[in-house]
């Protein structure tokens, strides 16, 4: 029981990192990023390849993963400078699929669909419950670190300018803000956070494979951020933990439903996720923690 809860909390923390990444690019900069799973994969692979095959220390692997995520974000951002909304969404979705398909097919580089097994873990596995608890502490620390960083950024003039870009590019540009620079910074930073999440995930489960980075993950995170509030770091974090709790709770609910076969239970769970989203959007369209309007500074 304890291991299960710890495991889900670690997964929730990984999701919380991803949710914060999405909050930054989507909620604050207005860039719909359907490529989240792609950046997640880039981070996971970067760290797994370095630490498993090159025996680099995990800290180096994780740092490289953050950099790789950020660079990938910059690359995608600069190739989509003129795109917004639906068009950007399609291109980023394409990016995630490219990452997954390259990872499946470039066997010399990534090990193909076999994936990379035996990725080193952060806390020795044979320490039993400490393995989960230690990893949880590390991932929660990462969540808090990113949270504090985001709070600082949001409160700063940079955060205000970013929201101005989101609300109206033209007005922001007339006010002398460089749209491209703000978008690129936000997107790249968001991708770096997703890279961090990927690296931590790989170092927890010791296994990285293309199948883990299906678009479903992106959808889940969109669900989490929508439910929690897409323009507040606390909302994203809360949404992520709630999502994992909800996904797991449906498992037990489906089990106690009478006269339901395993297959029907699986389908019911998928239905429940959809209904959950509809309910949240109906009752709280801005999420559980909606964006607070910021007063302009006094002077």
């Amino acid at each position: 029981m304890l291991t299960y809860i710890l495991f889900m909390l670690v997964v929730g923390s990984i999701y919380a990192l991803l949710a914060q990444s999405l909050m930054l690019s989507w909620g604050l900069a207005g860039l719909v990023n359907l490529g989240l799973a792609g950046f997640f994969a880039v981070g996971a692979y970067a760290s797994a390849m370095l630490t498993t095959w090159e025996q680099a220390p995990i800290l180096v692997g994780v740092s490289v993963a953050v950099l790789a995520g950020g660079l990938a974000g910059l690359l995608v951002c600069f190739s989509t400078l003129r795109l917004r909304d639906d068009y950007l969404a399609i291109v980023t979705l394409g990016f995630a699929e490219i990452v997954r398909i390259v990872a499946s097919n470039e066997v010399w580089l990534t090990g193909g669909t076999d994936g990379i097994s035996g990725v080193p873990v952060m806390i020795a596995r044979d320490t039993g419950v400490w393995f989960h608890l230690g990893t949880l502490l590390i991932t929660v620390a990462a969540v808090i670190l990113v949270y504090v960083l985001q709070r600082r950024l949001l409160a700063s003039p940079w955060g205000r300018a970013l929201r101005a870009v989101r609300e109206d590019q033209t007005v922001a540009s007339v006010a002398g803000k460089s749209i491209v620079r703000f978008k690129a910074q936000a997107f790249s930073l968001a991708a770096a956070i997703a890279g961090l999440a990927g690296a931590l995930y790989g170092h927890y489960t010791s296994y990285v494979a293309p199948d883990q980075f299906q678009p479903l993950i992106t959808i889940y995170i969109f669900l989490a951020v929508t439910a929690g509030g897409n323009a507040r770091p606390a909302g994203a974090v809360l949404g992520a933990y709630l999502l994992v709790a909800f996904l797991e709770a449906t498992r037990f609910l489906a089990e106690i439903a009478p006269g339901v076969t395993a297959l029907q239970a699986a389908a019911l769970r998928e239905i429940a996720v959809g209904i959950g989203l509809v309910i949240v959007l109906t009752l709280r369209p801005d999420g559980l923690l909606p964006e607070r309007s910021q007063k302009a500074p006094a002077s």
Partner: peptide, 11 residues
């Protein structure tokens, strides 16, 4: 999916 499969296995 390995991700969902792992969660189910833990449960």
């Amino acid at each position: 999916s390995p991700e969902a499969g792992l969660r189910a296995a833990r449960k």
